[in-house]
Amino acid sequence: MWDTLIVQPFTNVLLLITMLVQNFGVAIILFTILIKLITFPLTAKQIKSSQAMQELQKNPRYLKMQEKYKDNKEKLAEEQMKLYKELGVSPFSSCLPMLIQFPIIIGLYQSIMRAMASTPLELIKLERIVYPFIDPNRILPIQNRFLWMDLGQPERLMIAGIGIPVLAILVVLSTIVQTRVMTPPTEPGSEQTAAMTNSMNMMMPIMMGIISYQFSAGLALYFLVSNLTTIAQYGAMGKTDWSRIFPWIKTKPKPSKPVIVIPDLPDEEEEEPVIVEKVSKPSARASAKRQRPKMKK
């Protein structure tokens, strides 16, 4: 099922691109970008949702709520959910696009590995899943050579007799940039979360570097292109503070952004909070609810 729905179509598209451009390295690059473009609406949604959540966490009412109910987790959760509902923000809305993207990314990785068949048995298995519109004899086995790399082997650029893992280094660097781009700035009071995020941000590039160093260059190339595309997508959405990543870049102060203005946290006795103004775009349901006249009991 997984193979038929995800891996086989992906592999065939990859083979088709390879057949058209006559270069497997270029095909991996184009295919990765293509998949990233197709999944861009999901990425954009994920970015927007996480941005909304970040904005919300800066809100005085939210912060006050944290302080007020710090000893009553249940109540805190209840109040938070109420606030999310009022503002049309869902804490899970950034997870869903990520969950949908996950199988696509796994499928992409598997299709690249499958197309790089390096033994007769792998070739036999690859030939079997080729769709009729691709002539396997024209394309198989795939020429794995790309620039100085053998895409089927771990990459090393020989300089003065020393094999330098250029691709693995680039993967590490791009992963550092990508994690920084994707990680929101630390909020005061969330030191523990920040520590966790920092260790993840430290480990991810190391882990990706080790895998790229030891795995075939084709996979490392995919990692690199995928990282660069993600960075570009974040950049294109204007959600990146480049000075956080490259401190030598000076960014102009941005015009003040619309702020969610919410009145102080109501006392527990109060039934309904009254929203004074809300500039950020809430969900349709939340807008409708807001415009409805409130009946005092």
Partner: peptide
């Protein structure tokens, strides 16, 4: 991370 990287060092081809 090390465990994951360790898994990556095994045989990478089926024959």
């Amino acid at each position: 991370g090390l465990m994951l990287a360790g898994c990556a060092t095994g045989p990478r081809a089926e024959s």
